[in-house]
């Protein structure tokens, strides 16, 4: 600006159709227009000033000492059975929204309706099930899908499939609800010490033969002795017929549905035997968390109905 080589009072005269300049001239000829602000912009600016003043009056705005101006706007909601009216703030807004918001009220009504129904009524009622499906989309998505997957198909060898007929702890609504409320601790001991590798293969052959796989007859019969005898003691949890005992969390071993051992993914019989015998060797422990203290009884009911309706419910 030190290049400003003409004093401001020697302003060039304005012609009628020309825009006025600021009078600054740099490098002998470089000038600066002094256009007025566009009208729309100016009015817009005044409007924001007015808006700000109205906002200060209505909403919490100015800090003063250890407090602040609360504004004239209020929110009324219920707290501990009493009506409370406070200045406008997002926390009270949320409390009111949870209590009297259109969607919240509608959702609460539906939850109450479904909560008062029996399971067989819910499962047979189109409206109730459409609510269950809509609500569970969020609820199942946030609590269950991380392990059992978005569609309920689980993860082979880790988290159970909820869509098939294979149930460790039973697939009736009562059993599913109990699983959700109390959680489950599934445990099968490893047979590292008890069985040698030949015996492990015999047990594997026996279990696979129950599922329709052609196995060496001698191995099958030896494996059956271990399964149903004192040495293996497998029958104590899985039953003499290997059909599973839900109260033990022991699955049915005869339906060719595999959750914990990836038999379907094996290339041939030798690999199937290897996978089953290695599983028996290692044993397994799986945890289903309890949801009684995270979800309300009605939410658990909705999730139970949803899981039951995924395809495997009994």
């Amino acid at each position: 600006m030190s290049t400003n080589d003409k004093p401001a009072n020697e302003r060039p005269r304005k012609k009628p159709d020309e825009v006025e300049t600021t009078g600054h001239i740099w490098d002998a000829s470089l000038q600066e227009y002094n256009n007025p602000l566009p009208r729309w912009w100016l009015w817009g600016f005044y409007a924001t000033v007015v808006f700000a003043v109205v906002y200060w009056i209505l909403f919490p705005a100015w800090p003063i000492g250890d407090g602040f101006t609360k504004g004239l706007n209020t929110i009324t909601f219920e707290q501990d059975g009493e009506e409370v009216t406070t200045h406008w703030n997002t926390r009270s807004l949320l409390a009111r929204d949870m209590q009297t918001g259109t969607h919240a009220v509608r959702q609460r009504e539906m939850l109450e309706t479904v909560g008062a129904m029996e399971y067989d009524e819910i499962l047979a009622d189109v409206d109730a099930m459409s609510f269950v499906n809509a609500y569970a989309k969020g609820s199942y998505g946030t609590w269950c899908a991380a392990c059992h997957q978005t569609g309920g198909a689980g993860v082979m060898a880790q988290y159970p499939n909820l869509r098939d007929d294979n149930w460790h702890w039973g697939g009736t609504v009562e059993q599913i609800e109990e699983t959700l409320v109390l959680g489950r601790l599934g445990y099968m001991p490893g047979y590292r010490e008890t069985l040698n590798s030949e015996q492990l293969e015999q047990v594997a052959a026996y279990v696979l033969s129950l599922n329709g796989y052609e196995m060496d007859e001698e191995s099958v019969s030896a494996g059956g002795d271990i399964f149903t005898g004192e040495l293996g003691g497998c029958f104590q949890c899985h039953g003499m017929d290997a059909a599973g005992i839900a109260s033990q969390g022991a699955p049915n071993l005869t339906n060719d549905l595999w959750g914990l051992v990836d038999v379907p993914g094996a290339a041939d019989d030798a690999e199937r035997v290897a996978r089953v015998s290695s599983f028996v060797h290692e044993g397994v422990q799986r945890v289903m968390p309890a949801f009684a203290d995270r979800l309300s009884p009605t939410e658990i009911k909705v999730l139970t109905a949803y899981v039951h309706s995924l395809g495997g419910g009994q």
């Binding site: 707290q79 409370v84 406070t86 703030n89 926390r91 009270s92 409390a95 949870m98 209590q99």
Partner: peptide, 10 residues
Amino acid sequence: YSEGHFADFR
């Protein structure tokens, strides 16, 4: 804490 408790701090 009750539902509106933390609103008292705002």
